[in-house]
Design a protein around this nucleic acid. Structure first.
Lengths: 243, 243
DNA sequence: CGTGTCCTTGAGCTACTTCAATTTATGTGG
DNA sequence: CCACATAAATTGAAGTAGCTCAAGGACACG
């Protein structure tokens, strides 16, 4: 039914194949204990030495950067299975905060690097993770650079829908984050996010049910409105040179 | 004098240490012949199978994506020494075009991966490259998400200035790309770019000399106007939690 | 020296923001 | 379990940064 061909979301789920028994990135976290992080609490701080990597076991985490007074950018959301901090070299370039109550595991960067350096099976997965993060970041650059409010919101919702493990129960999509989170992720204001949802509702694309659930009425239409050409019409505008 | 602490620009110079004699990523391209690409011509196309990686030997290259009719996003500029396509897994996610007359080298993805997989010295450099690309992409997300026209342009110019090998001859900075390129990179229109330059000139921050050169009158001020907190005042707004 | 392209400047417009007032959800204590 | 309190979300009205459209000017090419 849904067929976004590239990665579904900013972060990239790295685990899930723990079950495969094989030595996967996710398995590196298996030996460490689970920590509980209540909603709103920080996991790590921008500017601090990145001594650990984290894996989300349960819940949703946001990565954010604060620039100037009151300006916040959310660069990614991370879900169960995702690894946080893979691309960091020395310091955290973001503050990671729990959006919902979370469970996480951590491993030290040192031992992570040692394991990845040693194990020939882990390395491709690690590299693949880095590549996908970059691809996701580029997609977000396109969104922030050229999409209008409606396209941004539809893209966001479409990404949520097509996440593996997405909380979709008979057309009801769980939105774990609040409007401010969504706004800061999409480069908009809460008001614009709110108004855009209302507009989509009036057009029978979706139907908000409470603050944290959306009934997806017309997924097809939603995807069309996301302004992602390749999501349905495959390649239309590739190889079209401007100027 | 200049002191941007993070990477100077979107792409990350990977070579330059060819001279070190050591086996570096750049050295992988040494054995292949130099190709000449005239300004405006494409090096690879979005959607095509990414069978090669490229290294810029001379000139400037832009990576761009076309979305919808007439909407173009430039995700990065690449300069001499930079590697293009490091983070690609299968297909090109961008069209690479020469901004100026260029010289490039290419290696096949296959042999690149083999070499990197084999050589323990190359791998950290490769991973480091991937990490830096992601970091650069995140910086660009912040720019596109929260910065106004003036901050965007100042950030852009400051990045150009602090590039290693930057073409700065006694305060005169070479701008190889045209206004449309700058606009599509910064998420603005040519008109806004033009007006913003005029405004900065009237405030004695810089002085345009022809279409492709800027005299940097007040670098300090330029950096301040770029809205990058950590560029001079170190950490001011870190660890400030909203909400 | 002319011609085409790129850049600049102006004037009006619009999508989104800002500020402010309600309305709706969520959680708490009686 | 309900009434209340507080935070979050919605809606409205007014403001604005940047866009669009259009014209004039500068640069680079033959």
């Amino acid at each position: 039914m849904l067929m976004q061909n590239r990665q579904a979301f900013q972060p990239v789920e790295a685990a899930t194949d723990i079950a495969r028994g094989g030595r996967s990135l996710g398995s590196l976290f298996q030996m460490s204990t689970v920590e509980v992080v209540p909603a709103g609490k920080a996991i790590c701080w921008e500017g601090d030495a990145a001594k650990h990597l984290f894996q989300v076991v349960e819940g949703v985490v946001r990565l954010q950067r604060i620039i100037g007074e009151g300006r916040r950018v959310i660069t990614a959301f991370h879900f169960a299975g995702d690894v946080i901090g893979a691309f960091l070299q020395s310091d955290f370039l973001f503050t990671a905060e729990a959006v919902t109550d979370c469970k996480i595991r951590r491993v030290s960067r040192k031992s992570f690097n040692e394991e990845v350096g040693r194990c020939d099976l882990l390395r491709p997965e690690y590299i693949s993770l880095l590549c996908k993060e970059t691809v996701a970041a580029h997609d977000q650059m396109v969104l922030l650079s050229k999409k209008n409010a409606e396209e941004r919101l539809c893209t966001f919702i479409a990404r949520l829908v097509s996440r593996r493990n997405a909380e979709v129960h008979k057309g009801l999509l769980r939105i774990p984050m609040n409007r401010q989170d969504i706004a800061d992720y999409l480069g908009l204001t809460i008001e614009t996010v709110s108004r855009t949802i209302t507009k989509l509702a009036s057009r029978n694309v979706l139907l908000p049910e409470g603050r944290h659930d959306l009934r997806i009425v017309n997924l097809r239409r939603l995807q069309e409105l996301s302004g992602n050409p390749d999501d349905f019409s495959e390649k239309t505008c590739h190889s079209v040179s401007l100027h």
